[in-house]
């Protein structure tokens, strides 16, 4: 059986909120290392990969591999009943028909309990190769969100060019063009404001802004976002969570010009 207790419901609420517009029905794969999720969007352009390590829960117990097939719209409805600060416990039997969610208020004696019916989801699982990326950029997640939103007002796609000069986000649209260039920057007082660019070779790739703006819904999960790029491979956008847990998005590049 599975029993996983999260100190704050907020974490799961934010994760589900960040991915629910991209993917609808997903398997939450539970085993003794934690709860993982991998799903592609309907058009197979983007892939979500979430890992909530067992250390992110206290306690965490999962004796066998259990796949919880959950509709994220249903999960969102139930999670709306949880206060951000509530303690959240997920429970399921070994061959479950439902997943049980319990929300406990730390301040009152209120205990809410919900069951969500599970679905049988036959999901393709993709093997993601270990990649040495040509460029890795760490930057404030709010800054990345703002750049994507600003450029989407002009164009549906953005080129991300990374060179030793810095990283340049550029777009061209009907009304004109725009670009934002960032250079490495260290803020001793506010490390969340740092921009770090780790480059082994120059990279230039073009991506759909609609997807990037969607990924940025995860911005509230982490002050920093990491962008990993290599020519002709999908972009990795990573939001690191506590205890080595993460929410990652992969986005296939645009082809040709």
């Amino acid at each position: 059986m599975l029993e996983a207790r999260l100190e704050q419901a907020n974490l799961l609420k934010k994760v589900v909120d960040a991915i629910k517009d991209l993917v609808q029905d997903c398997n939450f794969d539970c085993n003794d290392s934690g709860i993982a999720l991998q799903a592609m969007d309907n058009s197979h352009v983007a892939l979500v990969s979430m890992m909530l390590k067992s250390e992110s829960f206290s306690p965490f117990r999962c004796d066998r591999n259990i796949a919880l097939g959950i509709n994220l719209t249903s999960l969102t409805k139930v999670l709306r009943a949880a206060q951000n600060e509530d303690i959240l416990t997920l429970k399921a039997e070994d061959a479950p028909d439902v997943v049980n969610l319990v929300f406990e208020s730390a301040e009152s004696d209120r205990i809410s309990e919900y069951d969500i019916k599970l679905m049988d989801i036959d999901q393709e699982h993709l093997g993601i190769p270990e990649t040495e990326y040509a460029a890795t950029i760490s930057m404030p997640s709010a800054e990345f969100q703002r750049i994507c939103r600003d450029l989407m007002a002009l164009s549906e796609s953005v080129s991300i060019e990374c060179s030793k000069e810095g990283v340049k986000f550029a777009c061209q649209g009907d009304i004109g063009s725009g670009s934002v260039t960032l250079r490495s920057h260290t803020n001793v007082d506010k490390p969340e404001m740092n921009v770090e660019i780790d480059l082994t070779e120059p990279v230039s790739l073009t991506f759909s802004l609609k997807y990037l703006v969607g990924f940025c819904k995860a911005s509230s999960l982490s002050g920093q976002v990491k962008l990993c790029l290599s020519n002709e491979v999908p972009l990795l956008v990573e939001y690191a969570l506590a205890n080595n847990s993460y929410l990652r998005f992969y986005l296939a590049p645009k082809i040709g010009d």
């Binding site: 352009v45 892939l47 093997g127 190769p129 999908p234 992969y250 645009k254 082809i255 040709g256 010009d257």
Partner: peptide, 14 residues
């Protein structure tokens, strides 16, 4: 306009 690649062409099906 540039075409859009599929994520499946980059990652192996396992």
């Amino acid at each position: 306009p540039a075409g859009q690649g599929s994520i499946k062409s980059f990652f192996n099906q396992s």
